[in-house]
């Protein structure tokens, strides 16, 4: 009796999940022409980059610095056992540019800006602002949704680059200032081991994909939210949960492809 219910519950969840994915895809198809239209309205996009990107900058700077410093400490502890502490710079740079920079930035962005995007659009829907726009003959997709989508998509790669750079500087400060490594070795090992085309461009590519997906999920959840305060708060939670899962899953897939591709 009970397991039976459990199975139907699972089935229901899977069906509704697939349904959501389908709706999100349809939404993206509808959004595509609006993205083109909004691309000309630079001012709106700039405003939204300010709201999303610049406001996430502080948390990205702080997190990046700390992650870099932690990597330096932990990496040093392991490397020193094999007398390979000269590779610390390389270890930190590869971890940050390939993985931690893009992934952590996207996660932070989803939590800070993605949820805010969803809540904002959801509230605009709940308070009839979107309906009002429709009645004023203004299509909310290019006016409201598309600039936010662009902004998120543009901001995430920039933030990821900043995260990695700040992380490496943080690691340098710890490695040279605290652990007593030679600064020249730190940089030269890094330079001999980090490839621009694979590691840095690869990381940039990841963050571009993450930016797209997080922005997509955020605006979709907001636009799709039930127009009540409860509906908006649920949508906000869903944005953070689905974005995080999507980021990690995509990261796995892309990493697998990139490592094979070498």
């Amino acid at each position: 009796m009970n397991w039976d219910l459990g199975i139907s519950g699972l089935g229901r969840r899977v069906i509704s999940g697939v349904g959501r994915l389908g709706r999100a895809t349809l939404f993206l198809v509808r959004l595509a022409p609006a993205l083109g239209m909004a691309a000309g309205r630079v001012r709106l996009i700039i405003q939204q980059i300010y709201m999303t990107g610049v406001l996430t900058l502080v948390i990205v700077l702080v997190s990046g610095a700390f992650v870099g410093m932690i990597l330096a400490l932990q990496g040093y502890n392991t490397l020193v056992r094999y007398d390979a502490q000269s590779s610390l710079g390389l270890l930190v740079a590869l971890s940050l540019t390939r993985e931690l920079g893009p992934v952590l930035t996207a996660l932070l962005f989803a939590g800070r800006a993605g949820s805010a995007l969803t809540a904002e659009i959801g509230l605009m829907k709940a308070t009839e602002q979107l309906d009002g726009m429709e009645m004023m003959a203004v299509d909310p997709l290019p006016r409201v949704v598309a600039p936010r989508f662009w902004a998120g998509w543009i901001a995430v790669p920039l933030l990821a680059m900043i995260f990695s750079a700040v992380g490496i500087i943080g690691a340098y400060v710890v490695a040279v200032g605290d652990l007593g490594l030679d600064g020249g070795v730190f940089w030269s090992q890094m330079q001999s081991g980090v490839s621009v085309s694979n590691d840095i461009i690869g990381g940039l590519l990841k963050s571009i994909v993450f930016g797209f997906v997080v922005s997509w999920i955020a605006v979709f959840e907001g636009y799709d939210a039930k127009p009540t305060s409860e509906g908006v708060s649920r949508a906000t939670t869903r944005t953070v949960v689905s974005s995080s899962l999507a980021i990690l899953a995509l990261d796995f897939i892309m990493t697998a492809f990139m490592l094979r591709g070498l």
Partner: peptide, 17 residues
């Protein structure tokens, strides 16, 4: 913000890579 992001990319490409 955009300048900072591009500078970071430049640093990664030139100094790290």
């Amino acid at each position: 913000f955009v300048v900072a992001g591009l500078l970071a990319l430049a640093m990664l490409a030139l100094k790290v890579g």
